[in-house]
Structure formats: C-alpha cells, structure tokens
C-alpha cells in the first residue's frame, strides 16, 4: 500500500514539475497556457493525495475552470503576429536561471533537510470537508473572510474598469459594412492617441490596426 501511494506521488510530482517546466520554456504561448492547466490538474491530484479533498475540487473549479480559462481568453484577445525570430525570454534570462537554481539548491533544499519538522508519525485522518471549513470561516476566520470578499469585489470592479473600452467608442449594434467604412474614414485623419508615443521598437512594423474583433459586437456589457 505504501508503494502504491509512493508511485502515485511520483507520477503526480513528475506531472507537476514537467508541466511547469513546459509552461516557462515552451515557445507558443497557448501551449504554455495548456501546460499550465496540466500543472493545475496535477496539483489537484496532489491535494487529493494529501487528503485535502475540498481544496482539490476548489482547485479544479477555480484554477482550471476560471483562472486558466481567463488566461487562455486573454492570450487569444491579445494575439500578435507571431515573429519566430523574436526571443521569448529577456536577455538577462541566464542570470535569472542562475538565481532560481541557486535558490533551489543552496537555500531551499538545505533548509528542508536540516530543519527538524515536528511531524506526527501517524497523523489522525481528520476530514476537512465543507462543513468544518464553513464553521471555521464563520468563527475564527470571520474577519479575513469578509476582507477577502471586499478584495474580490474590488478586483471585479477594477478589472472591469481597466479593461472597458471608452464609452464613446462603444457601439450599440453591429455596423453594416458601409457604416464601418464610413466610420473608419472619419477616424483616419485624426490619428489615435497611441501614435503620439514613440513607437515601441519590437512592433513598429505592425500595420495600423484593424479595429479589434471585440469592438465590433457590443459584447462589453
């Protein structure tokens, strides 16, 4: 039985670490997001191994069902023409890699193996199900719970305000082709505010934007 658990742990760990390495190294950003989902799934499996059943389900519901889908969505909304010569990493990635490896090998691993973790030799299998968590949230952790709720509300409002288009540019209906052309011609003489900035070096060759797809249908609401 021990061996079964160890094998399961090994497979889960390999999945998590392998997927995480693919996330940071793979070139295609959509593939990176898909590997991120695989990594989240592995972590949910690990939670199950650690008897945190509720947390595993929340992990699947929130990370895979919401955060990862949001990431994929954002990637698709901000698609740029893929330039195969453009590097995916900063120039200083070697020093970053060195820092990360040093952090792992020189700080974390020695700490983990030298510290005496006072573990229970055979911990009682407690069950942290929704009932226990609910009682804890409503008693000992009531204030953090409320603050988390306020934080979520603030994030919701903030995200909407940041990502919302200008009120003037929002359209109440889908335009016909003639109206679209007329509107574009009307906008042409006055260049958009963006070109007042010095053009960024890497993307100076991108053609003047076709109005992004999300502007065309009034889906902002």
């Amino acid at each position: 039985m021990d061996l079964v658990v160890q094998i399961m742990f090994g497979v889960t760990g390999l999945l998590i670490l392998g997927a995480a390495l693919m996330v940071v190294s793979v070139r295609n950003i959509i593939h990176a997001a898909l590997w991120l989902i695989a990594c989240f799934f592995g972590i949910a499996m690990l939670y199950l191994l650690l008897h945190a059943e509720f947390l595993a389900i929340v992990q699947v519901l929130l990370y895979i069902g919401a955060v990862a889908v949001l990431v994929l969505f954002a990637v698709m909304l901000t698609r740029q023409i893929d330039d195969p010569d453009e590097p995916v990493l900063f120039q200083r990635w070697r020093s970053t890699l060195l820092i990360a490896v040093l952090l792992f090998a020189a700080v974390l691993v020695p700490t983990i193996y030298t510290h005496d973790w006072q573990t229970f030799t055979d911990p009682q299998p407690t069950f942290a199900g929704p009932r226990e968590l609910g009682f804890a949230f409503m008693n000992a952790y009531l204030l953090p719970f409320q603050i988390a709720a306020v934080l979520l509300l603030a994030a919701l409002v903030g995200a909407i305000i940041i990502a919302m288009e200008d009120q003037e540019q929002r359209r109440v209906r889908v335009l016909t082709l003639a109206e679209e052309v007329a509107l574009r011609r009307e906008r042409e003489p006055s260049p958009p505010a963006r070109s007042a900035h010095p053009q960024p070096t890497s993307s100076s060759t991108t053609p003047p934007p076709v109005p992004p797809a999300h502007e065309q249908a009034g889906e902002g609401a």
Partner: peptide, 14 residues
C-alpha cells in the same frame, strides 16, 4: 462524495 454538488460543476468546467 461529501462535496458531490461542487464536484459536479467543477468537473463540468474542465
């Protein structure tokens, strides 16, 4: 499952 209802919708979101 004691969290059956949540499981149902968590899995469907995949």
């Amino acid at each position: 499952l004691p969290t059956g209802l949540l499981f149902f919708f968590a899995i469907s979101s995949i």
